[in-house]
Amino acid sequence: MAGDGVLHQRVAVVTGAGGALGRATALRLGADGFALGVLGRKGAELEETAAQLEALSVPTRILDVDLREADAIEIAITSTNEEFGPIEALVNNAAIYPSTPFLDIPLSEYDDVVAVNQRAYFYAAQVAARGMVARRSGAIVNVGSITWHGGWSNLASYVSTKGAAVSLTRALARELGESGVRVNAVSPGAFPTKAEAIQGDAAEYGAHVLAHQALKRRGTDAELAAVISFLVGPDASFVTGQTINVDGGWIME
C-alpha cells in the first residue's frame, strides 16, 4: 500500500521483509504504530507482507531493492524518509545463506553473502543514521544469528557475516551514542523458517534443536519480532551495544 504523503509520527525501515522473520517484524512494528518501508526483492513474498500490512491499515512503501547495490539502498531509505517523514528505526534483517563446504566456496558466492549480509547492513545503517544523528534520536537493530557463537559446518560465509553484524553493532553503539542513537542486535536461534531446508531431514533437525534448547519447543516469528519491537521502542531507551540471543536458551553467555 502506498503512503498518502502525510507525515506519520513514527517511521521504520525493515530489510528482507519478504521472509518469515522480516514479515513478522514489519507486522509487529506496524501494530506498534510505525509507517513502514519494506525492502527486499519484489515478488510474491514481499507482496504478501505488504498485503498483510495493508489489511492492518499500516502505511507501507514497498521497495524492490537488490541489497548488493548501494545506490538502491540509499534511494529506498531516502524515498521512505521523503514519503513518511524521518526514519526512527532501521532493522537490518535481510540475509542469504548458501550451504557449501568451506573448501568449495567460490569467491563469487562469498562476495554475494558479504554484500547482502554485511555491506548492506553497514550502508543502510550509515544512510539512516545520518538523519538520526541530526535529530539526536533513533534506533538500529542488526539481526545476527547464534551461529556466530560456535560456528556451523558448510556455512562459513554466513557465519562470518553474522559475527560481523554483532561487531558492527558494538562499533556503531559506541560512536553514535553521544548523538542519542541506539544500536543493538538480536541473534535468533533455530526458528522454523524455510532456511531449515539446508539442514536436511526436518524431523531430525527439529529434534536436534530441542535437544540443545533449554525451552523444549520451537520459537515463533512473533517472539523474535517482540524483542526487536522492545529494542526500537521507548522501554529500551537506556539499552545500546547489546546482543540479545532469542533462541530458547541454546546459547547462554
Results as ranks from 00 to 15, higher is better:
residue 1 M to A: 15
residue 2 A to F: 15
residue 3 G to W: 14
residue 3 G to Y: 13
residue 7 L to I: 05
residue 14 V to I: 13
residue 14 V to T: 01
residue 15 T to P: 02
residue 18 G to Y: 10
residue 18 G to Q: 09
residue 19 G to S: 11
residue 19 G to C: 04
residue 20 A to C: 02
residue 22 G to Q: 03
residue 22 G to C: 04
residue 23 R to M: 11
residue 26 A to V: 08
residue 26 A to K: 05
residue 28 R to F: 02
residue 30 G to L: 03
residue 30 G to W: 10
residue 30 G to R: 03
residue 32 D to M: 12
residue 33 G to F: 03
residue 33 G to I: 02
residue 34 F to L: 01
residue 37 G to K: 09
residue 38 V to E: 05
residue 40 G to W: 09
residue 41 R to K: 10
residue 43 G to F: 06
residue 43 G to K: 08
residue 44 A to H: 08
residue 45 E to H: 15
residue 45 E to C: 05
residue 46 L to M: 11
residue 50 A to Q: 11
residue 50 A to W: 05
residue 50 A to S: 14
residue 51 A to Q: 15
residue 52 Q to R: 15
residue 57 S to D: 14
residue 61 R to C: 12
residue 63 L to N: 08
residue 67 L to E: 01
residue 72 A to L: 09
residue 72 A to F: 12
residue 74 E to L: 07
residue 74 E to A: 14
residue 75 I to P: 00
residue 76 A to I: 08
residue 76 A to K: 10
residue 81 N to H: 12
residue 82 E to H: 14
residue 85 G to E: 03
residue 85 G to S: 06
residue 92 N to Y: 08
residue 93 N to M: 11
residue 96 I to M: 08
residue 98 P to D: 11
residue 100 T to D: 10
residue 103 L to N: 13
residue 103 L to S: 14
residue 104 D to W: 13
residue 112 D to K: 13
residue 113 V to Q: 09
residue 115 A to P: 11
residue 117 N to K: 09
residue 119 R to N: 09
residue 119 R to L: 13
residue 119 R to C: 07
residue 124 A to V: 08
residue 127 V to E: 08
residue 127 V to D: 09
residue 128 A to Q: 11
residue 129 A to K: 02
residue 132 M to W: 07
residue 133 V to H: 05
residue 135 R to N: 12
residue 140 I to L: 12
residue 141 V to G: 06
residue 142 N to R: 07
residue 143 V to N: 05
residue 147 T to G: 13
residue 150 G to V: 00
residue 157 S to K: 10
residue 157 S to P: 14
residue 162 K to S: 13
residue 162 K to Y: 13
residue 163 G to S: 13
residue 163 G to Q: 13
residue 165 A to G: 12
residue 169 T to V: 06
residue 171 A to R: 00
residue 173 A to T: 01
residue 175 E to G: 00
residue 176 L to N: 03
residue 177 G to D: 05
residue 178 E to G: 00
residue 182 R to A: 05
residue 183 V to K: 04
residue 186 V to M: 07
residue 188 P to Y: 10
residue 189 G to M: 09
residue 196 E to V: 12
residue 198 I to D: 13
residue 200 G to D: 14
residue 203 A to N: 11
residue 204 E to M: 14
residue 205 Y to W: 15
residue 207 A to K: 15
residue 207 A to Y: 09
residue 214 A to H: 09
residue 227 V to M: 10
residue 230 F to C: 00
residue 231 L to M: 03
residue 231 L to V: 02
residue 232 V to H: 05
residue 233 G to Q: 04
residue 239 V to N: 07
residue 239 V to H: 02
residue 240 T to N: 01
residue 241 G to W: 08
residue 242 Q to L: 00
residue 243 T to S: 10
residue 245 N to F: 01
residue 246 V to W: 11
residue 246 V to L: 11
residue 249 G to D: 03
residue 250 W to I: 10
residue 252 M to A: 03
residue 252 M to K: 03
residue 253 E to V: 02
residue 253 E to Q: 04
